[in-house]
Structures are given as C-alpha cells and as structure tokens.
C-alpha cells in the first residue's frame, strides 16, 4: 500500500523547482497580506526603521554637501605674495604684470601698501593706534589665483613665486582649508560609526518584530510542522516579512531625508538671492537611493534571519 500511495501522489505535484518558486511567491504575497492586515503594527515598525535610518542618511547628505562646498573653496585657492618693503610701487606693478604672464596663473590682483593700511585701519578697529605709527609697516601685496586647484600645481607655482627676488613671502592660503578637510574626515568617520550603530539598531528592531510575529503564530507553526512542513518552508514567510519591513523602512527614511532637504532648500534659495551667491544643495543621487534601499532591505533580511534562527527551531509540537 505504501508503494501504491507513492505512485498515486507523484503526478499531481509540480517539479521541485517550480514548487519552490511558487512557495516563494506565495510567502511573498502572504507576508505582504499580513502587513496589510496589521497596518498599525507595520506602520509603527516601518516608521521606527525609517526614522532610525534617516539619521545616518541625513548626516551622509549633509557631509556630501559640505564636501561639495569645500570643493568650491579649493578652486578659489589663493597665493598671497608679500613683497620686500624696499620695493617701489612701480616695480611692484611691473612684477604683477610679469606674474600674470606665468604658467598656471589665472588672475592677479595688486594691493598697494597704502591700500593695505587703509583696509587694516578700517577693518581692525585699531585706527587710532595706527595713526601713531611713523611709517607704514605693511608691504605691497600681489594676490595670485592659480588656474587649477590641484595641490601639486599650486605648490609648484608657490615655489616659483617664492624664488622671485622681490617676493619676501609667498603664502598659500590653504591652511584653513586643510583644517576643514581634517574636520570633514572626522565627520566622515563619525557618520560611519553612526551608520553602523543605527544599522545595528534596525537589525534589533526587525529581529524583535519578527520574534513577536513568530510568537503570535506559535500555534500555526506547530500545526504546519505536524503536517510535514520543512524548516525552510516555515522560515520563508518570516524572512519575507523582514524584507518588507526593511524595504518599506528604507523608503520612509528616504522620504524623511528628502522632505528635510526640501525644507532647507527653500530658505537657501532666498539666501542665494540676497547674497547673489549660488550655493546649491545636493540631494541623494540615484545610486545613493539604490544603496539606501538595498541596504535597508538586506538589514531586514538579516534581522529576520537572526530572529528565525534563534526562535523558530525552538518551537516543536508537544
């Protein structure tokens, strides 16, 4: 009779592979149905994931903008040439013209000793004390702007300018920029740490949600085991549940960051108008979007996998 039964059962089953895909599809739809049936729980979980992920996402975008702005600064690198005090204004202006003709030089600007002193008097607030000075202590200055921002070119231009006899000091105004870059580097690492921490938080959130889900379906799991379901079969809907949570949470976090971006870009446009500047905020690129959604989905899968591995095997019929 056993043999008879096996023969009777064989034909109606589809082949292993399509049965496998069919169940994957069923689990996918089933887990989506569960989400649809319990909207409150799902919305809460997805919102928590979204908010959690929007933090590293927002920081990342912030950094990206700072980097873009600092890139603009880099292209405005200047070399200030302080000339010997003994250099006459006529000599200095001739020198400016020579320098303007040099390689890698974009523009030059001449600031005479008198102008420098005037500016200093106006800006420093030491007007009175400067008036007591018998002679002008400030040198003629030529401000040179290189035609490219590449560090090596700028440095070699600086060296060539320093070699000119009348030039006392050729000062590259990049120290503050280097400092900015160091700060950005620190910020980048902080974002990495924040991202790892928050990814871990999402893992825990999803793991816990799936754990509760498993507990709620305790009876069903036992029944399914008793009618011959394999562990993989039982696992599948829960894993897909995690995938949905991750995917939806990722989309929510993207929306949160985009809304934040929009709310900042309005005032920024007005600021640009007022200052005639053209700072532009950068938002997520398509690639960023894909990475965000893919990693949150993966986190969902990983979180549910951990929950399933820890809790599902413990459930056995008694």
């Amino acid at each position: 009779m056993a043999r008879h039964n096996v023969r009777r059962r064989k034909p109606p089953t589809i082949n292993q592979i399509s049965a496998y895909f069919l169940h994957h599809l069923q689990s996918l739809i089933f887990s989506l149905g569960k989400i649809y049936q319990a909207p409150t729980t799902t919305i809460m979980t997805v919102a928590v994931i979204g908010i959690t992920l929007s933090l590293p996402g927002g920081f990342y975008l912030f950094l990206k903008n700072i980097e873009a702005v600092s890139g603009d600064f880099r292209s405005s690198t200047q070399i200030s040439l302080y000339l010997d005090l003994g250099t006459s204004e006529k000599q200095a202006r001739r020198l400016e013209k020579d320098i303007a003709g040099m390689d890698s030089v974009a523009t030059t600007r001449f600031i005479s000793r008198a102008q420098s002193l005037e500016e200093f008097r106006r800006d420093s607030g030491f007007g009175k004390s400067i008036d007591t000075l018998s002679s002008n202590p400030l040198p003629h200055t030529i401000v040179v702007e290189p035609d490219e921002a590449e560090t090596f070119t700028v440095r070699s231009l600086q060296n060539r300018l320093q070699a000119i006899p009348e030039v006392k000091i050729a000062k590259l105004d990049t120290e503050w920029l280097e400092r900015l870059y160091t700060i950005i580097e620190i910020a980048k690492r902080s974002v990495t740490i924040i991202t790892i921490l928050f990814a871990f938080a999402v893992l825990l959130i999803i793991g816990n949600t799936i754990r509760l889900d498993i507990q709620n379906r305790y009876q069903e799991i036992i029944v399914t085991k008793l009618i011959g379901a394999t562990d993989a079969f039982i696992r599948r809907p829960f894993l897909y549940g995690g995938v949905w949570y991750g995917l939806l949470g990722g989309i929510i976090s993207w929306l949160i960051v985009e809304i934040g971006y929009l709310s900042i870009s309005g005032p920024l446009a007005r600021l640009n108008l007022l200052y005639k500047s053209d700072m532009n905020l950068i938002t997520f690129s398509f690639q960023d979007f894909v990475v965000l959604i893919a990693s949150s989905t993966l986190l969902g899968l990983a979180g549910s996998w951990i929950a399933v591995a820890r809790h599902l095997n413990q459930i056995e019929p008694t």
Binding site: A2, N5, R217, Q219, E220, I222, V223, K225, L226, I227, G228, A229, T230, D231, F233, P317
Partner: peptide, 21 residues
C-alpha cells in the same frame, strides 16, 4: 530532524487541542 517532515507527510494527524490557524 530533516527526515521528520517528509515522514509526517504520510500521516494525517487530528489532535483535539491543536487548533486551526
């Protein structure tokens, strides 16, 4: 553990206290 599900497919089990989902 892996063989049990396949063997159980030959059995129909009705338990009074095992409810339906």
């Amino acid at each position: 553990r892996q063989r049990i599900p396949f063997l159980r497919r030959n059995i129909g089990i009705i338990f009074q206290d095992h409810q339906l989902p």
